[in-house]
């Protein structure tokens, strides 16, 4: 199935979790936060939250600014 991570389309297998998607996307493990379809997914729910077709995932981290 297809999902969107940070604006880019990715193909992942059915039943992929947030944690699995992050791993395949190659995001840093620390200092990031995830929103699924506009709602925050707490880190302790990454394993058990599975993605659906056309899910929109945003992965944010702290950068220089402000």
């Amino acid at each position: 199935m297809n999902i969107t991570i940070n604006g880019q389309r990715h193909e992942v297998s059915e039943g992929t979790s947030v944690a699995g998607a992050l791993e395949s996307f190659g995001t840093p493990a620390r200092g990031v936060a995830v929103a699924l379809d506009g709602a925050v997914v707490p880190r302790d729910s990454w394993q058990r939250t599975t993605l659906h077709e056309d899910a929109t995932v945003e992965v944010l981290t702290a950068v220089q600014g402000g």
Partner: peptide, 14 residues
């Protein structure tokens, strides 16, 4: 610090 999309394979410099 600002919050922005994490790059695939990006660093965690700040």
């Amino acid at each position: 610090v600002a919050m922005r999309r994490a790059d695939a394979g990006g660093g965690t410099g700040v």
